[in-house]
């Protein structure tokens, strides 16, 4: 890869409380690529994602986002850096008490000095981009699972972040909705030039979107490479995953 690395992880060891889940994990994610983190349940996928987005602090190691050392940044600067990443949570994490439009407007209202008219236009535009042009005034509880994820995606891409993290975007969705969400992620990558880190264990979804695969097994990287390389890998857990 000749592109520059937007995410760089060096010797990351981390977990919850005192339980070590990730052991000495190192990898890079390059500009414009889609890296899929996969592995069996409990292997540390979501834990790794939480470290990358600053929700968990590792026991040791380094994380560079857009060239900044995330762990040594002062809190205020880290918050500013966080505006440059978008996160699509597993359940959408929309605020249930406000409308979809108000949810998407949060990043604009909190991080910019834009006027309300312009914010409203941007919100509508982002909802149109994710295929929800008529859902603006609905409450999250009035949306289906797939629509909720799309609305959450509209919020995640509000400020055109160069990096988007997605936790199990296809989980709990029917194959048609999951495929359309995958296509949407590919379109957004193409349109906005985003770099995507996607955590999933849906095999069909991986085949559709992954440029490279990072396979975690018991907290360690068991494989890092393209889909073709993964299919030919001699690593036992990788072989088991693709041919259960």
């Amino acid at each position: 890869m000749t592109s520059k690395a937007l995410i760089k992880v060096e010797n990351l060891t981390g977990g919850y409380n005192e339980t070590v889940i990730l052991k000495d994990v190192s990898f890079e994610v390059y500009e414009g690529e889609i890296l899929v983190i996969l592995g069996t349940s409990g292997c540390g996928k979501t834990t790794l994602l939480k470290h990358l987005i600053g929700l968990l602090y590792p026991f040791s190691g380094k994380i560079y986002l857009l060239g900044h050392d995330l762990l040594s940044l002062p809190e205020k600067k880290a918050m500013i850096l966080m505006r440059k990443i978008g996160v699509l949570f597993q359940n959408g994490a929309l605020l249930n008490s406000i409308t979809v439009a108000d949810n998407v407007a949060i990043p604009y209202e909190q991080h910019t000095n834009l006027k309300t008219d312009l914010i409203n236009q941007l919100v509508r535009l982002k909802l149109k981009l994710v295929g929800l042009p008529h859902a603006a005034e609905l409450l999250p509880s009035e949306l289906s699972g797939g629509m909720r994820k799309r609305a959450a995606l509209a919020r995640a891409i509000a400020l055109d972040p160069p990096i988007l993290f997605a936790d199990e975007p296809a989980a709990g969705l029917d194959p048609v909705t999951a495929a359309s969400l995958d296509r949407l992620l590919l379109d957004l990558r193409k349109l906005l030039g985003m770099t995507l880190v996607v955590v999933t264990h849906e095999l069909t979804s991986i085949k559709r979107i992954a440029d490279r695969i990072l396979f975690l097994d018991k907290g360690r990287i068991a494989f890092l490479g393209t889909m073709e390389q993964a299919m030919a890998s001699e690593s036992e857990p990788v072989k088991k995953f693709f041919n259960p």
């Binding site: 910019t112 834009l114 312009l118 236009q121 941007l122």
Partner: peptide
Amino acid sequence: LDSTGAVFIQS
């Protein structure tokens, strides 16, 4: 030029 800039200029 990001989406905010594009929408603003055209509006």
